[in-house]
Nucleic acid binder design. Structure first.
Lengths: 206, 206
DNA sequence: AAACAATTTAAACACTTGTTTAAAACAAAA
DNA sequence: TTTTGTTTTAAACAAGTGTTTAAATTGTTT
């Protein structure tokens, strides 16, 4: 009768928090239920299993992360500016959701991690024409000849690693966890300068 | 009487393989025992617990990884060449042990991951004088003014991420897992060029 | 040979895991 | 109020967890 959407949503929200923090294998159904303030059986009543619940959440997190990058690629700014803004938005997104990079990586490295449907999202990105734009810039000589895979890897490395390696860096370099965000602000500038300088060939043949 | 070192070593070796592949929470004591071809109880007979066993292995892996970088820092090559060789050795090491970066990161992000003793190793690195050398180069104007933390983060990002994100990249970009190493060879060149060009200021004021 | 201590084993321990069951509580319709 | 269907609950399920125990096996020393 009365569909209590609140309970289902409460579980889903609690599950997202717990999964992001501990990963799939790192938490139990009961932990999720407790975090939601509900009974264990309700997790399987609303979602069929712990795995199905995780699948829903992971897919949504994945899409959220990937669609963030679509917006600016469609604009008609110069390629270099597009890239700069993209990196800026990527850092802004990761500052809000610093757990996501490791969460995704962790799941992708799980032995029985399910295959996810990224083709739909990747083709959306492809439809913005960003990839052709890069190839044309390379042909025109304004951009260094790096493979698309290389470009993407360079960007992801320098954007995602600093966030997922927070604990490692803080222990290794004896840094204060509270002031690590300040570090990240500096690093964003480093990364932006370095990547753009490397990607784009400035005309110095005066 | 006769100390059968073989059994203890067999378990340790099997445990290292399993831990590297699945992580601490991702495997069971019995799985380790089976991989070693031994009884479950022997794991706790030789090592006091699963946790103690992991602690030993993690510490050794951590030291192995960090001491790799010490050798070349002591040489008297120019700083730029030192860096180039360091990146080269780092990539060579990671090609041999591609699971290590994620293994370490995963453990550092575990909620009850134990604090490790890195100060001893870090001070060894510090003793090579590499950090002072960088600061002097920055003062002399041959090196860009980036914080030490920034430099280390840039290097680690670009060396470690491509290895730990193999599964992610392959799924995302629809790459063949078997030919990913080829990608890594290309990437090593990109990374080396990019980092050195960014770190060091070439004298173009002719 | 017997005695001894180190090693290995199968079995059990108490506990947690994901999931299911069957009864209770609830709200709305008859 | 009774009926009906949905939601929630406590309890149980079988399987798996790390760890311990106590007996069996082994090798070495006397």
């Amino acid at each position: 009768m009365k569909r209590d959407i609140s309970t289902s949503a409460k579980i889903k929200e609690a599950a997202k928090n717990v999964f992001l923090l501990k990963g799939f294998s790192g938490c139990s159904s009961r932990e999720i239920a407790n975090a939601a303030g509900e009974n264990v059986a309700l997790v399987n009543y609303y979602f069929r299993s712990k795995g199905k619940l995780f699948e829903q959440i992971f897919q949504s997190v994945m899409e959220e992360s990937l669609t963030t990058m679509i917006v600016e690629f469609g604009s008609d700014l110069p390629l270099r500016e597009k890239m700069r803004i993209f990196i800026k938005h990527e850092y802004a997104f990761l500052k809000k959701h610093p757990e996501i990079p490791f969460f995704i990586l962790n799941e992708m490295n799980r032995e029985d991690g399910f295959v996810l449907d990224t083709k739909a999202i990747m083709s959306k990105i492809s439809e913005t024409g960003i990839f052709e734009e890069i190839l044309q810039a390379q042909k025109a000589g304004t951009m260094r000849e790096i493979s698309l895979v290389g470009i993407i890897t360079l960007i992801m490395s320098n954007c995602q690693f600093p966030f997922m390696a927070k604990n490692l860096m803080c222990q290794l370099l004896d840094l204060n966890k509270e002031e690590y965000p300040t570090n990240l602000d500096n690093h964003e500038q480093y990364v932006t300068d370095m990547l753009l300088d490397y990607f784009f060939i400035t005309n110095t043949n005066k």
